[in-house]
Simulated scan of single mutants.
Amino acid sequence: MNTVISRDGTTIAYTRTGQGPALLLVDGAMCYRASGPNTPLAQEMADTHTVYTYDRRGRGESGDTTPFAPEREIEDIAALIEMIGEPVFLYGISSGAALALAAAASGLPVSKIAVYEPPFIVDGTRPPIPADYTASIETMLAQGKPGAAIRYFMRRGVNLPAPVVAMMTLMPGWSTMKKVARTLPYDAAFVTEFEHGRPLPEGRWDGVKMPALVVDGSKSPAWIRNGTRDLARVLPDAEHRTLDGQTHIVKPAALAPVLKGFFR
């Protein structure tokens, strides 16, 4: 297992594969190297890039240190980039896209950034998150109810229909998600500011001065596609792409050619 030590002493586990310019992939909520879309994406990208995947703190083989603050996750990315030893291409998906944007805006050596469907709610095409969204999740976790926290996240955060969420509890991956449910507030820290049905604020990501690619899927819900387009509008140097036939669960084989064309 490859590891780096973050600024607060937390061990962050990572995998390196392929050869070429360095590309660092950032996972979304409850995903990590052994369970999520970025490991298969890394395999698709490995013929043209040296790809780094890692377990965000509190997940997989990475450690965790309390108390949590959003800055700690940015420091984790900083430690990985320092280990890599050169400016990187950076990619994030879903809430990991919001983390990647925050890392790039902080001034880390990122040459280009690409994001897929950050879960921003910028209009009335779906209900905004409740005002006590994060507090509710934290209360459920403190009560030892990770399953309830995940169901609440899926219903109020992701906006999935109740029958779909009920079916998810019967799937084999449910137990895996429960093991990392305690990190749901970590993702919330990067996205809740932008989930209240208002257009994204001008100037919020002025620090993201490098070229950016903002991608969505043509079959994704209107609310998340609208948020993706609005992000492209407010970023200083961004282009927007839609992948035909793709949903929020984007297929690596469909996404990789677009990323290869951009990360040159």
Rank of each mutant, 00 (worst) to 15 (best):
P127W: 01
A189R: 03
P118S: 14
D237H: 14
H196M: 15
R229S: 13
D230G: 06
R33M: 10
K179Y: 01
S95C: 10
L259H: 00
T176F: 04
D27Y: 12
I93L: 10
V164W: 05
H240F: 13
A100P: 02
P163Y: 03
G197C: 12
W223G: 09
I224E: 04
L41R: 09
E71R: 15
L200V: 13
A46T: 04
G197N: 15
P201W: 04
Y54D: 04
G58M: 00
L141V: 06
K251M: 15
G28D: 02
L99S: 06
I84Q: 03
A29W: 00
M140V: 07
P21I: 13
N226W: 05
G245K: 11
R233M: 13
D206V: 04
A102W: 00
Q143Y: 04
K178N: 08
M210T: 11
V180N: 03
D237T: 10
G197L: 15
R57W: 07
F120Q: 11
F194T: 08
V115R: 00
P221T: 06
R241T: 15
G63W: 02
P236Q: 11
P37I: 11
E73S: 09
G157H: 03
Y152K: 05
P130T: 09
A102H: 10
R264C: 07
P119L: 13
P161Q: 13
A238K: 01
P163S: 15
T228Y: 03
L101D: 01
G63K: 01
S35R: 04
A98Y: 04
T65G: 03
P109M: 07
G28E: 03
M1G: 10
T183L: 07
K219I: 08
F194W: 14
F262T: 05
I249K: 14
T125N: 15
D76H: 05
K209V: 12
Y116K: 12
T183E: 07
D206S: 14
D76P: 04
V4R: 09
P146T: 02
P70S: 07
T134Y: 01
T66Q: 15
P211F: 03
K112N: 10
N38M: 14
P161N: 05
W174Q: 07
K112Y: 04
Q143C: 08
M167R: 12
K260T: 15
T15K: 12
T247Y: 02
S94K: 08
E73R: 02
P252N: 01
